[in-house]
């Protein structure tokens, strides 16, 4: 297993927002974590990337315990978090945002090559490279957030609600992008409220409700599950 989470609990102050969460992601796999507002999806990703401390349980990456090391060490291991709300550096240019995505890397030739690869994959970023990130449209910003994450050469990409507020065409484009990333051998843990899209994209899924895993399994099974169909797919 690339990522193994066992009996994870998390608290904000005294409020427990995750309990007993166990979850796995295999090398090169797309896994989705779905759930309603406030279920704890973002919190789960924050625990994995190290933005918040855990209260109990353990997180392993490629076999190693990572839940007590700082975020930058986890980044070194290949865990890259594309956070909720994009969190670009708004007063830096598109190009600078890409460069800072590769902040921990020292191979300037490799960085330049990757940047050109991003430009080839997302021509809009090339066109806008001198523009401030804050001036991009929502969809463009989401693409940039992805690209910035990829600049760190992830083994595991944590993606938090990339489709929020995007037009259907843009959602399709992002799906294609994630498939492409997946084909390059990168594992993805995708958090989504758009369950239909997420379940089609991923091979396995977890359903999170008020901080607990309520269902888990191959997406085929979840798509067939009556409860999931009623509560999350509106069918």
């Amino acid at each position: 297993m690339l990522l193994e989470i066992r009996a994870l609990a998390m608290e904000y102050g005294t409020a427990r927002v995750l309990s007993g969460v166990s979850l796995n992601v295999a090398e090169g796999e797309i896994v989705t974590l779905i759930g309603a507002n406030g279920a704890g999806k973002t919190s789960c990703l924050r625990a994995i990337s190290g933005l918040n401390p855990t209260a109990a349980g353990e997180i392993r990456f490629a076999g190693e315990r990572i839940d007590t090391i700082p975020p930058r060490k986890r980044l070194d291991m290949g865990i890259v978090h594309v956070p909720e709300g994009k969190r670009l550096f708004p007063r830096m240019t598109v190009r600078e945002n890409l460069e800072i995505g590769a902040f921990k890397r020292r191979d300037s030739a490799g960085i330049a090559a990757d940047r050109e690869a991003m430009f080839a994959r997302f021509p809009i970023l090339q066109a806008r490279q001198k523009q401030r990130a804050g001036s991009l449209s929502g969809g463009e910003q989401q693409i940039l957030a992805f690209a910035r994450g990829l600049m760190a050469r992830p083994r595991l990409l944590l993606v938090d609600e990339p489709t929020v507020g995007l037009a259907p065409l843009m959602v399709q484009e992002l799906s294609r992008t994630m498939r492409a990333i997946h084909r390059d051998g990168v594992a993805i843990l995708l958090v989504e409220q758009n369950a239909a899209m997420a379940l089609r994209l991923a091979s396995r899924g977890y359903l999170l409700e008020t901080g607990r895993i309520m269902a888990a399994g191959p997406t085929r099974e979840l798509l067939a599950n009556d409860y999931v169909r009623k509560a999350y797919l509106g069918l």
């Binding site: 975020p71 800072i100 902040f103 921990k104």
Partner: peptide, 13 residues
């Protein structure tokens, strides 16, 4: 300066 948390995610100490 622009986003400390995002900076943390970029591996900045």
């Amino acid at each position: 300066e622009q986003d400390p948390e995002a900076a943390l995610l970029m591996g900045i100490n």
